[in-house]
C-alpha cells in the first residue's frame, strides 16, 4: 500500500516535471539566442525643451506645427496685468524627411524674425547587444531680422540681418523619467552694434526633463555664455517648464527670462534677470500631423 502511494507521488511529480519541461522546451525554440540592439526612444517629449531644441526629431513623414507664445514680465505689475498685456509669438512648422532628418521654418514677432533650420540626429542611444550611452543631434539655424530701420532713409544690407546658430545636442535618457542634455553652441551674428562686441558667441546649454507622471514632466534649460557681450544688458537664458503630453499634442508651460524664441536671439539676447523677477510666462503647443503614413506589415 505504502509503496503504491509512493509510486503515485513519483508519477505525479515527474509527470508535472515532464509537462513543464516540454513547455520550457517549446519556449526555448522561439526565444532569441542573441540579444538585439534597441534604440532608446522618447528622450524628450517635444523637439523643444523651453526655447532651445532637444535631440528629438519626429518620425518620417510627420509635420509638427509649433505655436510658441511669451507674455511680458511677471514683475511688470498690476497695470500690465503681470505681463499678460504683452505678447510675443512664434509660429513654426517642421517636417521630418526621415526619422533622423528634419527641416523647419518659423516666424517670430520678436524683432519680426524669420528662421529656418536643419536638424540631423546622427547618433542613437542604444541598449542590448550594443550599448551606446547617448543620442546626438546636429542643428544649424539661420535667422533673418526684418525690422524696419528707425531712420527710414537708412538702408540695411540683407547680410546684416542674418545670424546663425550651430549646435551639437548630446542627450542621455538615464531612466524612464530622467533625461539630461548638454549642448555646445556657437551663435554668429553677421553684424553687431559696436566694434567692442563679439560676432561669435560660444555657449554651452544644459537642459533636462524629469517625468513626474506618465504624461507630465518638469523641464529646465540654461545656457552659459562663455564670451557674452557684457556691454549689452544680457543675461544667460534660464527657463523652467511644465510639460503635458496628451497623445498628438505636447503642451509646455514655461517661465523664462527671454521673450525671444529663436535660437540666435534667446541664447545671446536674453535681457531679463530671472532672479529679479524678469520672468516671461508663456507656452508652447505642438500638434503633430502624420502626412506620409507608415506602411503596415503586409497581410497574407
Amino acid at each position: 500500500m505504502k509503496k503504491s502511494i509512493k509510486l503515485l507521488l513519483i508519477l505525479i511529480v515527474s509527470f508535472g516535471f515532464l509537462n513543464a519541461q516540454a513547455q520550457e522546451e517549446l519556449l526555448g525554440l522561439i526565444e532569441d539566442s542573441e540579444e538585439k540592439t534597441e534604440q532608446i526612444e522618447s528622450t524628450f517629449n517635444g523637439t523643444r525643451i523651453i526655447n532651445g531644441h532637444s535631440v528629438e526629431t519626429r518620425g518620417a513623414g510627420t509635420l509638427d506645427v509649433i505655436f510658441m507664445h511669451r507674455f511680458g514680465r511677471l514683475n511688470s505689475g498690476s497695470y500690465n496685468l503681470w505681463g499678460l498685456d504683452d505678447a510675443w509669438i512664434r509660429l513654426g512648422a517642421e517636417y521630418a524627411l526621415s526619422d533622423d532628418f528634419t527641416v523647419g521654418v518659423g516666424r517670430s514677432s520678436f524683432e519680426k524674425t524669420y528662421d529656418g533650420f536643419l536638424k540631423y540626429k546622427f547618433l542613437h542611444q542604444t541598449k542590448g547587444n550594443k550599448n551606446f550611452p547617448f543620442t546626438s543631434t546636429a542643428l544649424a539655424t539661420m535667422a533673418i531680422n526684418t525690422l524696419k530701420p528707425t531712420d527710414p532713409d537708412q538702408e540695411i544690407q540683407f547680410s546684416s540681418r542674418v545670424s546663425y546658430t550651430y549646435q551639437i545636442l548630446i542627450a542621455r535618457k538615464f531612466n524612464r523619467s530622467l533625461s539630461l542634455q548638454i549642448a555646445p553652441t556657437l551663435v554668429h551674428h553677421n553684424i553687431v552694434d559696436t566694434p567692442m562686441e563679439n560676432n561669435d558667441i560660444f555657449s554651452v546649454g544644459f537642459s533636462g526633463r524629469h517625468k513626474v507622471s506618465k504624461r507630465m514632466a518638469v523641464t529646465f534649460e540654461y545656457y552659459y555664455q562663455v564670451n557674452n557681450n557684457t556691454e549689452k544688458n544680457n543675461y544667460n537664458p534660464l527657463g523652467l517648464g511644465l510639460e503635458i503630453e496628451t497623445g498628438g499634442h505636447v503642451f509646455q508651460l514655461v517661465f523664462a527670462n527671454s521673450q525671444a524664441m529663436t535660437d540666435t536671439s534667446f541664447i545671446t539676447e536674453s535681457s531679463g534677470d530671472f532672479f529679479d523677477g524678469d520672468i516671461h510666462f508663456g507656452f508652447n503647443i505642438s500638434r503633430v500631423f502624420q502626412l506620409k503614413k507608415n506602411q503596415p506589415t503586409k497581410k497574407w
Partner: peptide
Amino acid sequence: GEVVFSIPIKSFTFEKSLMQEH
C-alpha cells in the same frame, strides 16, 4: 497540443510614428 508564442511589442507598426512612440 502545447503551444507557445511570443510577440515583440516594439515591432508593432502604426500609421503614425508618434502614436507608435506613445
